[in-house]
Nucleic acid binder design. Sequence first.
DNA 1: AGACCCCTGCTG
DNA 2: CAGCAGGGGTCT
Length: 315
Amino acid sequence: MPELPEVETIRRTLIPYLLGQVVRAVHLFTPTVWRGQDPAAMVGCYVTGLDRRGKHLLISLSRSPGSAHGDAASRPGASDQPPGGAAARSADGGGGAERSAGSGGPALGDLVLHVHLGMTGRLIFLPPGDPAPDRHVHARFSFDRGALSYQDTRRFGYLELLPGSSLGDHPRLRLGPEPLDGSFTTEVLRGMLAGRRAPVKAVLLDQHIMAGIGNIYADEALHRAGVHPLRPAGDLGEREVETLRDALREVLEEAIAARGTTFSDYRDGEGRPGEFVSRLCVYGREGEACPRCGTPVARQRLGGRSTYFCPRCQK
DNA sequence: AGACCCCTGCTG
DNA sequence: CAGCAGGGGTCT
């Protein structure tokens, strides 16, 4: 279930393999996962940028190599980690703080491949050689140095090829602020929660209000903050909002440093699982002792989704 | 705000 | 083998 930390990890792991490379061919095995322009329009384009907005990955493609934007082009050394370099980079700006906040963001390419991984989507760069065909591989993008494989068992994700100029008013990219952006202050979070009667967890999960939070990190952040997930959002006190703001940022940054959470499906851009599962306090741990107080973790349904929390720590 | 849908692998 | 799981969109 790729949420913000997983998509960010995929983005970072793919940069050294894709940036500056030319798309030589696109093979679409499952046409229903594709939206927008014809995949053939990508062929011959340079990859000029990889950006993330919430859980969405944006791969910029340009006719010429010179129009590489922002990312690696202006941050030499920060992103140009050579293939195979496994060093975690948790100190390069806080994982996403440098990303655009949305309006007037970095210039995208002539075309943008917009990727949403749904629940089980994977984007993995494979070295040359034909790996065993898998019925869950829906598309493959060939480069000189290997191929990018798009896989998705449940097919909740999609690939969408769009003109770079059209991203600004894309309905699915009308997202709330990035929680790791420097501008995500306690004041901003308070504004998001104020006056809302909906459960605070439902507000955190609403991508239009805040981008990138999914079921796992909503539960983990609320546990860290000691806030019950069903509390009406507008009822949180100022101190609680501040604590929740810090908890959100901490859990996301720690998860990025651990390269994401793998239960079963998630893999990074090199096919490796993330390591954050062992650090989860409540998510997926019904009946286990709360790490803070020992009370068994409870599970409850909220909007059809499982919600895990400590009935004692979270008021 | 809740029901339903997409889809497939795993669980009971 | 029926039913559950779940991000997110749509519909009621």
